[in-house]
């Protein structure tokens, strides 16, 4: 079941692959942050990226929607194939890529706009102008992000007036509003209290199946709870990748075992 290496994994019993990462190297200037990453992210599943701080898991997450592009002096080698296209090929439209690959950040970052405008922003920039259609999208996205009931009577208030947990669900609704296939989450609950964290985890469970979710987390229990697959990163290398259940019960690698049993990290 371990899917390391760029050879095609056996297809029997294997889920469909959504993101195929082949020999990915990533550099910040001269510093190499990722070394030869090969990984096949299965479609419709939740994949958790774990590892100690600075291990490259967030950097890896950001290569998947090319958010690292906005930092100057970065360089990518290797391939990331999403829906049979190499997203680092020169003819790729980053706008379309990011429409398909949504992102939720560590700190909730709603725009200083109304709740409605926060969610409508994405559809609007992708060309939807019809008010009724926008309203429909906003409602559907907020329902999907399990925040509709809390905000339906006050869609006009600023997104910044919500609590931290509500803000994060608003950000998830905002990401869902452009109808992505993949959702990247960068420690989405690390700035939240336990109850809000619980709600985000429930939400991830609900979105599973309809979206391919890749989530970075510091919290081992969280990875075990929410994910189907787990990838362990250490010092820029992908050490082990496989079904979460197996990684947490029978890791193949000594470093993985040490990390998940809390011996370092």
């Amino acid at each position: 079941m371990v899917m390391i290496g760029n050879q095609t994994p056996p297809q029997i019993d294997e889920p469909e692959i959504e993101i195929d990462v082949q020999n990915l190297d990533f550099y910040y200037g001269k510093h190499q942050a990722l070394h030869d990453i090969c990984m096949s992210v299965p479609k419709g599943m939740v994949t958790a990226l774990i590892g100690p701080s600075g291990c490259g898991k967030s950097t890896f997450l950001r290569t998947l929607n090319r958010m690292n592009d906005i930092i100057g002096g970065t360089r990518v080698e290797g391939k990331i194939v999403i829906q049979s296209k190499d997203i680092y090929a020169p003819n790729i439209d980053v706008v379309m890529l990011r429409k398909r690959v949504g992102m939720v950040f560590q700190k909730p970052n709603p725009f200083p706009k109304s709740i409605f405008e926060n969610v409508a922003y994405g559809p609007r920039i992708h060309g939807i102008k019809n008010r009724a259609q926008l309203q429909e999208i906003v409602e559907r996205s907020l329902v999907r992000a399990a925040i509709w009931d809390e905000v339906k009577d006050r869609l006009h208030i600023s997104g910044l007036e919500l609590s931290g947990g509500q803000q994060q669900r608003l950000c998830i609704a905002r990401a869902l509003a452009v109808d992505p296939d993949i959702l990247l989450m960068d420690e989405p609950a690390s700035a939240l209290d336990p109850r809000s964290t619980q709600r985000i985890e429930d939400l991830i469970a609900e979105l599973r199946g309809d979206y391919t979710i890749v989530i970075v987390t510091h919290n081992m229990q969280q990875a075990a709870r929410v994910s189907d697959y787990t990838a362990f990163f250490y010092e820029g290398h992908l050490i082990e990748f496989g079904k979460t259940e197996r990684i947490f019960t029978k890791p193949n690698n000594k470093q993985t075992e040490d990390y998940i049993t809390g011996r370092f990290g």
Binding site: M67, V94, R98, G102, F111, P112
Partner: peptide, 26 residues
């Protein structure tokens, strides 16, 4: 805050859209 800009870019907005719809209003 750059977090606003990042959120906008991550939704597929171009740099100019981000400037005129997010950064300048903020």
């Amino acid at each position: 805050p750059s977090s606003y800009k990042q959120a906008s870019l991550a939704l597929g907005a171009s740099k100019l859209e981000t400037i005129f719809k997010i950064t300048v209003p903020a």
